[in-house]
Design a protein around this nucleic acid. Structure first.
Lengths: 339, 339
DNA sequence: ATGAAAGCGCTAACAA
DNA sequence: TTGTTAGCGCTTTCAT
């Protein structure tokens, strides 16, 4: 049986309220009593019951974190950063990996309100966000503060990577190197903004966007990249550079080129997005756009905690955009002089 | 303000116990009452307070999971598998990434007992386990069931990959391909058993173990592998194959060889361990030993839940060893005929 | 500075 | 089948 505050009180010869007071340290207790109680606590190995405490205090000191997939390096890192940050500020993080299943996401979101999370950080991708709309509303109704990585949820503060700018600098990098026929392979959802960045870069540099160089594929995986490139090749269109919506897509595309005898970067320069761990190891090492996960995570936490410490009526909705960084490696080549 | 069971009771014109009964569904309630209460619950959007319920039931339906580093692909996957498995069985997983810091590990372990986790799955590496000994004991004293990936905790059931066998088959693979001078680079802790597997394979095949071919490095990282190989080269010793305690070490070693003009696998065949995601992408793609994370995770969960459902006195300590699998790719070459 | 007592929202005997 | 009551382990007025 666990030791309770009652036993401590009896053993120390004081009332439970006194024990509670030394536990919480806000009310004043005589030095002498404090010491005596502390001793007993030590001796009895007493640990206050967090659950009971929670019930009264009406706060769990726990934040729910919803991510699409823990086995995805990006989300794993994000989770770690957020957990560390929250831990440092006295919160426990309940990490929930939805595996991109809307049902699971709903269930987890629901759990967050049942279990009285103090707040929720929602990092699921917009693509799947639709199904969660109801639960998100439920959280809001329950008065649970929420921040998100998805800018498309009304009335919810968010922190986002600047995908448009990220893609812009990536494509601009290719343009500066002298490549003129830059193809694009991207997935759905968030990648939309990356496509815009691609278009913007071309336009700002006086190029016309050739729609036949653009491939919007089904998913975000290696296989999708492979297919995207097949499709590009099948159309017979010529290109000397390629921007991919993420690193995995880039790996897949490079694989397809390799099989077709196209050399990277000699024949086609490639740039990815995300800077996943393998990007450095891959051969050729991948030029890519790095998202400052650390910064994003910290901002999310700050935003949420700020919300927690503000009365509901005075809370404001913020949208914070974090700049990205281009990491130049081998795959984008050393440039190419136009004939 | 959250709706409580009281308001539901009043609105439905029944007592709170009746509401509780329809909520839990074990006592029998008349069809009619059930419907009426359900309606009110629906109408009031009532969600029973998990915390209050927990307090009485003395179970949180939550399992603590301690992993060394979420940003490590291996642990991320393991966490995901375990969380899925537990979720499917009605438990929530509280994932805690200790970042290999003993203090943090202790704090998390402590939290697990404060927060009354129903059980704990301990996946921290033995190397850091020492510091946690006290908290582990505390958990045991508190009667919180515990399972582990580490076979070295007395009185705790564990599930482990068969490192000895894994390394054995890896090295045997190299021997069968005709390599005679097989070097070893491995990290500390768990890798000890891998070293044993290496020795065993050599011995079983009639080779003498040449100690000068063995390098036990500081850590498990890319840099450590790089250094390990430098050290091997510095000693001037000849080798035609190399086994590395994990894939990252292998990548590092290959990098070092590459810089030294040693070709893999033509000059030196390499085998890694873990089959991390990049192993496939790396060039040359890495022959490696795959740990069946899925199986390990599921066994851990089963072991723990079995423990939960058994009265403390009747619990048994089990050690489950999961076989590993060799994934042959390019880095081990196609064999080499001895002169 | 300390104690007594009233709950937090719910479940689980025990009655009726 | 349903209601009444007594807590779960703690914090927090309100007295003293």
């Amino acid at each position: 049986m666990k030791t309770t505050i009652k036993e401590v009180a009896k053993e120390a010869g004081v009332s439970i309220s006194t024990v509670s007071r030394v536990l919480n340290g806000r009310d004043r207790v005589s030095r002498h009593t404090i010491n005596r109680v502390r001793e007993v606590i030590e001796k009895l190995q007493f640990q206050p019951d967090f659950v009971a405490r929670t019930m009264i205090m009406k706060r769990t000191s726990t934040i729910g974190l919803i991510v699409p997939q823990l086995s995805n390096e990006y989300w794993a890192l994000m989770s770690e950063v957020i957990q560390d940050e929250l831990w440092a500020r006295g919160y426990t993080t309940l990490i929930c990996s939805t595996d991109n299943e809307p049902d699971k996401e709903n269930a987890y979101l629901r759990m967050c309100s049942e279990r009285r999370m103090d707040g929720v950080i929602y990092c699921s991708s917009p693509h799947y966000g639709l199904a969660a709309g109801e639960q998100i509303e439920a959280l809001k109704t329950a008065g649970i503060p929420l921040v998100s990585l998805d800018p498309n949820i009304a009335g919810v503060s968010c922190v986002i990577g600047d995908h448009l700018q990220g893609t812009y600098i990536a494509v601009e990098h290719l343009i500066r190197l002298g490549y003129g026929r830059i193809a694009y392979i991207g997935g759905p959802a968030v990648s939309i903004e990356r496509e815009f960045g691609y278009r913007k870069a071309l336009m700002m540099h006086g190029y016309t966007v050739d729609e036949s160089l653009i491939r919007v594929v089904q998913g975000q995986s290696f296989a999708d990249g492979y297919e995207g490139l097949q499709s590009l090749r099948a159309s017979g269109i010529a290109f000397d550079a390629l921007f991919c919506g993420n690193d995995l897509l880039a790996f897949g595309a490079i694989k397809a080129m390799e099989e077709a005898g196209i050399r990277v970067p000699e024949d086609v320069a490639v740039v990815g997005y995300d800077d996943i761990f393998s990007a450095r190891l891959f051969k050729p090492s991948l030029t890519t756009v790095r998202q400052p996960i650390q910064d994003i995570g910290q901002e999310l936490v700050q935003l949420l905690l700020a919300s927690l410490e503000t009365e509901p009526e005075r809370r404001t909705v913020r949208k914070i955009v974090i700049p990205t960084e281009l990491i130049v490696r081998e795959s984008s080549g050393s440039g190419q002089m136009k004939a």
